[in-house]
């Protein structure tokens, strides 16, 4: 048991937790923006996957990591706009349309990689490089802190900045104000002259962009190549984090961080004498426990706080 504790307290584990939490953070905040705009973005998974694939391919062929990353984010943004269009223009169910986009992304990326590189597995044959890491000159040599914080990928930094950014957007800006109103009461927003659709399109574009950044991190930060279906359900876990976090930016931030830590734990414990099958269930078991806890707490709160009927 003490070996488990050693693992958890090691700086290597903490650094891994931050790294692994990165895609969860970005995708979950993306999911949050869409959810608060009133359209569930089930397509987070597909947007991440498309961005990961586009990023690796474009970077590989153009030789520019920056261009690759930007193209990846752009593709995910367009998928976000596409989901909004399917919902708003054609009246499609957002869940069904999202599932459709996920299947399209899974098949489409595999097809693109196969037709370009003649490889069914991924782009490991292509040299596409990865996004730069950030070393902090002073902090680098501080024990533990230096190991954990310094040398993280720049996208990890962006992911941690995304939470305050989304909170600021939601609660301080006019756009965030309108976005929340549109998601909660579209009729009320429309009746005061807010352009409901435009707000929802913008929200879904932002959602896609955040998911895209998460995807780009997977193929250009985590590793430096694209593997078929490499998102492995992260989009759905991110969606769970949206609800677990109570649809609030900092709540979602903590939930996503929790999922990242759980997965990091699973990875680190793999080196110990624990059955790997058991270890790999940790993130999922944690999801279930957390969701149950959340539901229980909400039920209790519902009972304690009476609906005030002041006159």
């Amino acid at each position: 048991m003490s070996s488990v504790l050693d693992v958890v307290l090691s700086s290597a584990f903490l650094a891994a937790a931050l790294r692994i939490a990165t895609p969860y953070l970005l995708a979950a905040l993306g999911g949050l923006v869409a959810e608060r705009a009133g359209i569930s973005n089930i397509a987070l998974e597909g947007q991440m996957l498309s961005a990961a694939c586009t990023g690796a391919l474009v970077a590989g062929y153009s030789g520019s990591v920056t261009v690759g990353a930007l193209c990846g984010v752009a593709v995910a943004t367009l998928l976000g706009v596409l989901l909004a269009a399917l919902r708003l223009e054609l009246g499609a169910d957002a869940i069904i349309a999202g599932i459709g986009l996920n299947l399209l992304a899974s098949g489409g990326t595999a097809y693109a990689v196969y037709s370009l590189l003649d490889d069914k597995g991924g782009t490991s044959g292509l040299k596409s490089g990865s996004l730069p890491t950030v070393t902090l000159p002073g902090v680098e040599n501080v024990p533990v802190l230096g190991d954990v914080v310094s040398g993280q990928n720049m996208v990890t930094w962006l992911a941690f900045l995304a939470a305050p950014f989304v909170a600021w957007l939601f609660y301080r800006t006019r756009f965030g104000f309108h976005l929340r109103a549109v998601g909660e009461m579209p009729d009320a927003a429309a009746s005061v002259g807010i352009a409901v659709r435009r707000v929802q399109y913008t929200g879904l574009a932002l959602s896609g962009a955040l998911a895209g950044l998460a995807g780009v991190f997977l193929s250009m930060g985590y590793v430096s190549f694209f593997v078929r279906d490499m998102t492995a359900g992260r989009g759905f876990i991110a969606l769970a984090a949206v609800f677990l976090g109570g649809m609030r930016p900092w709540g979602v931030f903590l939930a996503a961080l929790g999922f990242g830590a759980a997965e990091a734990l699973a990875v680190q414990l793999g080196s110990l004498d624990v059955p790997p099958q058991l270890v790999s269930t940790i993130p999922y078991a944690m999801t279930l426990v957390a969701l149950a806890l959340y539901a229980w707490r909400r039920k209790r709160r519902g009972r304690v706080v009476p609906t005030a009927a002041s006159l």
Binding site: R180, A181, E184, M185, D187, A188, A189, S191, V192
Partner: peptide, 9 residues
């Protein structure tokens, strides 16, 4: 008639 207010605001 059905009031156009955002409940959580």
């Amino acid at each position: 008639q059905n009031l156009m207010l955002v409940p959580s605001f």
